[in-house]
């Protein structure tokens, strides 16, 4: 490539990265601002972090959200792994095209539609069968499992697609039963994808506002619902502190994951050559 176009390209991409990161960095800096007027600088301070941890409402919502995210991500990983496996390893069966559609559609479905339709389903089920009685953690977990399942399935499916089938075939030739083939060969091979899928599901569940607003009951606010009701009224310094903590936690997890993956691939490369 020519040097001139390359410099222009670097500048354009640089501007793009500034665009991606400037708001996040500004938010982090403001979280240490002493002044109550969020945008006026009043010196460094940790007082919004203290306020954050003494805010009962935020803390209990955070705990509820963490519980929901943990359960939903785990359920979604099991169901999503099954779905991804079925779609990429099983020969054609009745309904395969339908299943593949049901797995892809939730990825792009506008959240307002997913939320409304699940709420109406729960209300309908409650009227007809008396289950689920009311709405709360259970209904949010079901809703989150459903949309997170799709993400896990896609991650697992793409891992299986890139995986060499010879190992599985060899095990089959040696007489492995389908169940032991899956648990002894396939599962260990796709475990990095399942872990990535679980983490993705966990953060997506932790972040969901719209679907949870539809399907959660009164008094069962999740963390994003509490944040939304606060920031709707204007800028809140405690939310800056909360945002900073979440961003730092996620960044560290992502960086750790990348370093581990990088080492792994270098290790593999060394062994292969």
């Amino acid at each position: 490539m020519k040097q001139g176009s390359s410099t222009a390209l670097k500048m354009m991409s640089g501007a793009g990265f500034v665009f991606l990161y400037a708001p996040i960095i500004a938010l982090i800096v403001y979280s240490f601002n002493d002044s109550k007027l969020v945008t006026v600088w009043g010196g460094w301070s940790l007082k919004w972090y203290v306020e954050l941890f003494s805010n009962e409402q935020i803390m209990s919502a955070a705990w509820a959200s963490l519980k929901i995210a943990f359960i939903s991500a785990t359920l979604a990983s099991v169901l999503g792994t099954l779905a991804g496996f079925v779609l990429s390893r099983m020969r054609k069966f009745v309904g395969k095209a339908m299943l593949s559609g049901w797995v892809t559609a939730p990825l792009v479905m506008p959240e307002v539609i997913t939320g409304l339709s699940l709420l109406l389903l729960f209300v309908f089920l409650e009227n007809v069968f008396g289950w689920p009685a009311g709405r709360g953690l259970l209904t949010v977990v079901i809703a989150h499992t459903t949309f997170c399942l799709a993400y896990v399935a896609v991650v697992v499916q793409s891992r299986l697609a890139s995986l060499d089938e010879t190992l599985e075939e060899a095990a089959m030739d040696l007489g492995a039963k389908p169940a032991s083939l899956f648990f002894l060969i396939t599962l260990p091979l796709i475990s990095p994808a399942i872990i990535a899928g679980w983490l993705l599901a966990f953060t997506l569940s932790l972040d969901d506002l719209v679907i949870a607003s539809f399907v959660s009951g009164p008094g069962n606010s999740t963390l994003p619902m509490v944040i939304f009701s606060k920031v709707r009224l204007g800028v809140t310094p405690e939310v800056n502190a909360l945002a900073t903590l979440m961003i730092v936690a996620v960044s560290m997890a992502v960086i750790a994951a990348i370093v581990i993956m990088h080492r792994q691939s270098r290790y593999n490369d060394k062994n292969n050559h």
């Binding site: 990161y21 996040i24 938010l27 993705l200 953060t203 932790l206 909360l242 945002a243 961003i247 960044s251």
Partner: peptide
């Protein structure tokens, strides 16, 4: 990693970050 990182951080909080920046007394106006 730099592209994926924002994707993993909260959607709601990234929208909120722009609320802080775009206010009349926010950084962009400054």
């Amino acid at each position: 990693a730099l592209v994926i990182l924002p994707f993993w951080t909260s959607f709601l909080l990234r929208v909120y970050a722009w609320m802080v920046l775009l206010r009349k007394d926010g950084l962009v106006n400054d």
